[in-house]
Write a protein that binds this DNA or RNA. Sequence first.
DNA 1: GCCATATATCAGTAAATGCAATGTTTGTGA
DNA 2: TCACAAACATTGCATTTACTGATATATGGC
Lengths: 292, 292
Amino acid sequence: MLSMIRNLDTALVRTFVAVADRASMTAAANALHLTQGAVSQQVKRLEEALGCSLFERDRRGLRLTRSGERLFDKAKRLLALNDEIWAEMAGSAVAGQVRLGVPYDLVGTLLAPVLKTYAERYPQVEISLVCASSPELTTALAAGTIDLAVIEERVGPTAGECLAIDRLVWVGARGGAARTKRPLPVSIVADTCAFRPVVLSALGEHGLEWRTVFENGNIDATTATVRSDLAVTTWLASTVPADLDILPFDSGLPPLPNFAINLHLPVHGVAPAAQEFARYIRDGLSRRAQAA
Amino acid sequence: MLSMIRNLDTALVRTFVAVADRASMTAAANALHLTQGAVSQQVKRLEEALGCSLFERDRRGLRLTRSGERLFDKAKRLLALNDEIWAEMAGSAVAGQVRLGVPYDLVGTLLAPVLKTYAERYPQVEISLVCASSPELTTALAAGTIDLAVIEERVGPTAGECLAIDRLVWVGARGGAARTKRPLPVSIVADTCAFRPVVLSALGEHGLEWRTVFENGNIDATTATVRSDLAVTTWLASTVPADLDILPFDSGLPPLPNFAINLHLPVHGVAPAAQEFARYIRDGLSRRAQAA
DNA sequence: GCCATATATCAGTAAATGCAATGTTTGTGA
DNA sequence: TCACAAACATTGCATTTACTGATATATGGC
């Protein structure tokens, strides 16, 4: 009889180990990007499948039962083997070149840790980072000069996949005075910037005098300009450096809409390396998406 | 980053190994009790997940690709570890006593291989086999004198779980003459047998003279009676020994309805050993259910 | 006694997945 | 050469699963 073979759900095993490691379902849930309820259910499912309880629930947290301890070692071995297979199988297919398009303002902030993680995991992949404004990236993707792109767009229908939604906010030097000058000095990182038309129309509707300071695609130049209180600018809230002010609603500047951070892939054919990069990007930004 | 961890689906891995072992998806599908389409889909999913093709499809069957070979060894180790965990964890909880109720006619036929498999897998479980008619088993289950029961019932609503549906057929000695005698000699294994009222009412409606020969719960006595051409009897088609005749529709005997073979568990609380027994029974009868 | 923290449970929903049926390709025999 | 058979791929459908979000329950600190 080949029958009577049961397959462990690796996800449940991983959850079990995470809970055991932390002696807490809530902590494990955070680590696994799950809700606490989901972890509770997974533990329960595993216990039911195996027909024995794995944790002793009493005051002052969880402890492994005898059965739980017995499972623990083998569970870790199972996960190790699982991860080994992934590393070997998926890793081998990930090679060659990936050209990633990223808006100026996200390179150094949101995407930096993702880039680092990916580059460390797949050192053999040659990453080309294409920094441009969101509209330019859309064009480049269509032209095939980049393999995937993170693009900032107005919230709404999109050809891409929404990774996060963030507020567009006014930013100025801490305690600065640029925000009160008229005409308002506004630094905009590039004349093709996705924020530009939105910001300018908001200023227009608000009847505010303003002048622009273009930095020609150099985000650091913009940062320096703002930090020196020579101008204000607009950024996504999550990309604002800690030493700059997000200007409050009552600062007299017009309110700005939310923007979506979308992941775009070519219509056809994505190489494994790019596919994998996409997964890293999704994963790296998913937590912040919830916070927004 | 804890992220970027992916869990293999053990079922897909098992399918992969089954296919690789047999160099055939169709053969693997049979072994795994799946349709060919499902196996094809599973292989495809695994290939997509890993980002590389595992089999080379060309004329004259399947062969492992380079990637497939690389996966194969580790896959088998993963399954071995998986099965080891099951054996250790689930096995330990399965102990004690299980009292299984089975109708007379199923003990030696449908259920024999299941009993054997379970007894071999869990030698430490003390199995009590309670042979009785289906109505008696229902009573015993309610009374708590048995832990689970396989019960034959008319097709329709039931408190149990349908394992199979089978034809009730007239059975006689090969080329025998008992079938033509009037009054028809009918052997019925017990006066509480679930088939009895159905058979008698069918005979009555058909206006056929008959007399019964009770064997008092001994299925072998019935078999001997029929084999000696002393009487005919009624059995589920799948339990008829090869050396006896299933009497055809035109034999002048009344048609009989289908019966369901249902698995019944107590309303509350099933011990792991009984739970596991139920799984073996389900699995052991599932194939025949499809044939019926 | 009340709040804070942690786990369990419930209802609703969106995704996953198996089956059945059908399409496609390839090899075989009349 | 055509029909047929065998094997794998694909599609539509229906069921099941397992998540989230909300809520209930339990425990300890103040």
